[in-house]
Design a protein around this nucleic acid. Structure first.
Lengths: 200, 200
DNA sequence: CGAAAATGTTACTGGTCGGTAACATCGTCG
DNA sequence: CGACGATGTTACCGACCAGTAACATTTTCG
């Protein structure tokens, strides 16, 4: 409570390093970002970086964990905004993703890392997989609460559409197929919600 | 006609280099693959590589072009197998992609490169974008020929599902959402073909 | 205050990378 | 054969990179 007045770098060096790393990884890729550049962007230095993280790979893992935690917070916001309303959360989720598709700070760190971490044994891959499994469970649970008969099928459909929208954004830009993501995802939700057990 | 008997490396060094580069890029990433490793894998050497390509970036562009040409050939096969049958080609396309999703040699070089080529000005990005635009036109044309009313919408839906399936394969593995890609894509086709103008 | 812990600074290592120069070899064709 | 173009070999350059050591500084807290 007594710390951080208005100092240029108020958060701990560790947090600043993780944030700087995530930013640079996003902008220049994981392999294209050196630890010196990370330490520099974090207003810190390489030694402090290596006192907190045993290696660059270790830092990568921490970045992925932070990205996952950020998404956790986002899911909690959804639940708060539409308490108990599976369908509402589902549609809000889609809307939110569509809005952030074009952001520089898009939530595709997991996908991006999955492509760049070519070594199958990289510890980051397990973080990605665990996150994706949890995400799938959450979406399917939402579909179930929305009264959808085949919740798994709608869930996987939405997940494919979302990953596809992010990938298409990278390849084709904002005017490509990703431009109609929200429309398509909404249609899928409506179709499943209508043909399955009726919600409410 | 008089060349290549049964020699260990029958194709030209240039072709071998491109093929080796594509293979290594796929397995270890673009930034994770050195030119020495490429020349080595091509049973050639760095000097010959640099006599054919002015830089590694130049080689990357050529690899993307080759990948695009390979896909062109694949589209021609589709037309040959189902001449004039838009719906048949569409379904065969989906089936083929689903079959090759798990392949080590999956056709996600474009998506992978789009993620790894972080520099917006990299010449490879234009190749990717051009390819994706052409792909989109082709798919939409197929949908149109299949008698689908909103051909653009089904086209984009299928493109999102396909990119999503490839991305999900990278992140979640074969047992993730990509496992139901074929089922979902087929359902989308049937839904659109049924609700639009009836084919045949 | 004063000690201890955390952080910053500088300099260094060994390795890899993209790219080039000089020279040797091979294949083709007149 | 002989010459020429394509290919292979070796060695090198400068830049960058992950990681470490030794030392100086600041921050924290009893």
């Amino acid at each position: 409570m007594t710390t951080d007045f208005c100092k240029p770098s108020r958060r701990s060096p560790r947090d600043r390093i993780v944030e700087a790393a995530r930013d640079l990884f996003r902008r220049h890729g994981i392999r294209g970002t050196g630890v010196d550049a990370i330490a520099d962007a974090a207003d810190s230095n390489k030694m402090t970086l290596y006192r907190h993280f045993s290696s660059k790979d270790d830092l990568i893992v921490e970045c992925l964990r932070h990205a996952g935690m950020e998404m956790d917070g986002f899911w909690r916001e959804l639940e708060d905004a539409h308490p108990g309303d599976g369908l509402g959360q589902l549609r809000a989720w889609v809307r939110r993703i569509a809005e952030h598709l074009g952001d520089d700070r898009c939530q595709c760190e997991m996908m991006s890392a999955a492509v760049q971490l070519t070594d199958e044994d990289h510890p980051g891959r397990e973080v990605i997989r665990t996150f994706k499994d949890a995400q799938r469970d959450r979406v399917v649970e939402l579909c179930r609460r929305a009264g959808v008969a085949d919740a798994e099928l709608l869930g996987d459909t939405l997940l494919l559409l979302i990953e596809g929208a992010r990938a298409a954004q990278q390849s084709s830009g904002a005017e490509g197929p990703s431009a109609r993501f929200a429309e398509i995802a909404d249609a899928a939700i409506l179709f499943f919600a209508g043909s399955g057990a009726v919600p409410r």
